[in-house]
Every structure is written in C-alpha cells, then in structure tokens.
C-alpha cells in the first residue's frame, strides 16, 4: 500500500478538488422537485382524505384532482425541458429498471398520469353534462381509478429523494433521510394545498379540519428536516460559513414553520390561512433549491479556495 508517512507538498495538484462532476441540474430541477411534490402530495392527501372521510373531504378532493393533474403536467414539462435532448424523453420508457430511481420514477409518473386523467375526465364530463352526475357505474369507475392511482402516486413521491441520495454528489450522498424528508414534506404541501382549495371554494368544515392537520404536519416535518440537516452538516460546514448555515436554519424554522403555524392556529380569516399556505410552499421551494445547490456550491467553494491559494502563493504576504 502507499506510504502514508510521506506527506508531500502539492502545488496545486488535485487533492483539493471535488472528484465528482456536478450534473447540469439547475433551477428547472428545483421547480421540478416542487411540482412533483405538489402534485403527488395533493393527490395522496386528497385521495386518502376522500377514502377516509368522504363526507368531510370528498367534495374538496374532487376539486383537488384537476389541480393535481395541472401540477403534474407542469412537472412533466420541467422534466422534459431539463433533458439534454428533450425529443428523446420517450427513451425513458424503452426499459423498466427498478435499479434506477429515475426509471422507476418515470414509469410511476406515467402510470400515475393515466388514472388521474381518467378521474378528471369523468369529473369534467359530469360537470359539463356529457355524463350523468348520479351514475353508480361512473362513481365506481372514478373510485377505482382513485384507488388504483394511489400506488403510482406513492412511487412518484418516493423516488425523488432516493434519486438524489443514491448518487455520488457531495452532500446528497450522505443524506440518508432525504427521501423521508421529501415524502413528509410533500404530504405537508398537499395538506396546505387542499386547505387553500377548501378556503377558496367555500368549504369551511374541510378548511377547519385541514387547518389543524396542516399545523401538526408542519411541526412534525421538522423531524426529518433535522435528520437531513444533521447528515448534511459536515458538507454544509465545509461549503458555507457557520453564520450562513445558522441563518438558513433560522429562515426554515421561523419562516417555514413557526410563522405558518401561528398564522394557521391563531390567524382568524382566509387571508391569514392562505398566507400560511403560501409560506409553507415558499419554504418548501427554498429548501429544495438549497439542497439542489449543494454540489454546485461545493464545486464553487473548492474552485474559489484553489484560486485564493494560487494568489497567496503568487503574492507572498
């Protein structure tokens, strides 16, 4: 084996470089992360809510499915646009590779889109009078589609975090709870979206129930957030100054958790609760953007340090 006793001066060498290359995933992927979690979180929350408490959440869930479909289509546009060769998106579907989270995710999203479209099509046809609104057969078909859609929606939700943690990138590779955080966060976002829909469409009973659930979920989401933060801490400490890390943490705790919870529980009236929903979504986006930036920031910090070292060597003192 190598002789470890021989510490050698390297100028500048490769010792301080990140070995891995940063994938060209930028802002578009942060939006993709958000829209993926918005659509899957909303659908799962609405479907589970409708199946568990149809009387309370059924009417709101029916309104949520079209929104979930729009969010899904937006997400798919982001996914396709981010490819190096968008016209080859369909190549994703030439193989099914469970070993690849991206393959699993693409198939899950594709399958998820089909029953979701069916649900929305049935609802739309009933709304405009093309189909009878009281048909048992149609209701059974819609209900079946909702149940069938649960698994691919769950797959679409689960793959995203694992995709990032199953990589060799600085930070991401250490984040064992990234998928867990994303799942919890997506359901929290879904709850917040459903709350907004129930407020905007005039369903006060549903809004009252969802307000409490949202407040509890926002607080509970701190557990996986904390776990991910602990795993990312060494990488973050290397990239950023302590003050920057604590500032970001404070924003997450105050802006994304404390203020929304106070607004949800203490705020009286729709504007306060909608403000809370907005903060939850914005906070979710900010965290996703920060997570996505870690390899980029790591690479930049290494490059900056090397440049500084070169200057220091060139200009002694």
């Amino acid at each position: 084996m190598q002789d470890d006793n021989q510490a050698r001066a390297i100028e500048p060498g490769y010792l301080t470089q990140d070995v891995t290359k940063v994938p060209g995933w930028h802002g578009l992927v942060a939006w993709d992360l958000l829209f993926n979690n918005l659509t899957t979180g909303l659908f799962l929350f609405a479907a589970v809510g409708e199946l568990a408490r149809p009387g309370l959440l059924g009417p709101v869930a029916r309104l949520a499915y079209p929104v979930a479909l729009v969010l899904l289509l937006t997400d798919l546009v982001m996914l396709v646009a981010d490819l190096g060769d968008p016209l080859r998106f369909h190549h994703m579907l030439r193989v099914f590779k469970p070993s690849s989270p991206m393959s699993l995710g693409t198939w899950s999203l594709t399958i998820y889109s089909l029953p979701l479209t069916l649900i929305v099509a049935i609802e739309a046809a009933q709304f405009i009078g093309w189909l009878p609104s009281e048909s048992q057969a149609l209701e059974w078909m819609r209900w079946s589609a909702v149940v069938f859609c649960l698994l691919p929606a769950f797959g679409s939700l689960a793959y995203k975090g694992v995709l990032f943690s199953t990589s060799s990138q600085p930070g991401w590779k250490d984040a064992r709870w990234l998928g867990g955080w994303m799942a919890s966060s997506a359901l929290t976002l879904g709850c917040a979206e459903l709350l907004a829909i129930s407020i905007l469409t005039g369903h006060p009973r549903a809004a009252a129930a969802l307000r409490t659930v949202a407040a509890v979920l926002v607080v509970l989401n701190l557990i996986p957030t904390g776990l991910v933060f602990l795993e990312l801490r060494p990488t973050l400490s290397r990239i950023y100054r302590d003050q920057q890390v604590y500032l970001a943490l404070a924003f997450i705790l105050v802006g994304g958790t404390l203020v929304p919870v106070v607004l949800l529980l203490a705020g009286d009236g729709a504007p306060w609760r909608l403000g809370a929903v907005l903060l939850i979504v914005l906070g979710g986006f900010a965290v996703r953007l920060l997570l996505l930036k870690i390899p980029h920031a790591s690479h930049e910090s290494r490059t900056g340090a090397r440049a500084l070292e070169s200057v220091r060597r060139a200009v002694p003192g």
Binding site: G49, F154, G180, A183, L220
Partner: peptide
Amino acid sequence: DYGRTIASALATIAVILSLL
C-alpha cells in the same frame, strides 16, 4: 433509502388519518 422514505410517508399518512 427507499425503506426510510416509505416509512416516513406511511408514518405521515398515519398521523393524517388519526387527526382526521
């Protein structure tokens, strides 16, 4: 990682159902 993700999602859904 998948295991943690599924566990986290199921735990969150359990909380949601309990609260509902």
